[in-house]
Design a protein around this nucleic acid. Sequence first.
DNA 1: AGCCTGACTCCTA
DNA 2: CTAGGAGCCAGGC
Length: 101
Amino acid sequence: MNDFTQQVFAFVYQVPVGKVATYGDIAKLAGMPSHARQVGKILSNLPADTKLPWYRIVNSQGKISLQGERGDYQRQQLAAEGILLSAHGSISLRTYRIVTS
DNA sequence: AGCCTGACTCCTA
DNA sequence: CTAGGAGCCAGGC
């Protein structure tokens, strides 16, 4: 367990209901702008019963990176929080992203 | 060390 | 908006 991992957990936990963040956002907030991929790796190691809202993290295109069952579950959770998908099946970052660049 | 693999991103066309 | 290519970095072999 290193500091970066701790930071990632902390920031992901802070994403409010109905909002999303990108892997890059979390990495940047954690002080490692080039570690977006690591964020994904860390989330992939989370236990199934984690309290962390990992499903609020999507890629920079506002799309779900996960495939198969996991991806369906993530979409389901987001929909349950009122996050609607655009016509092309992607999330409007302009509307839901917590970080405004 | 080298090579491959990802829940990634940016730049360019 | 999409597609391709390059950069990125930790891990496993």
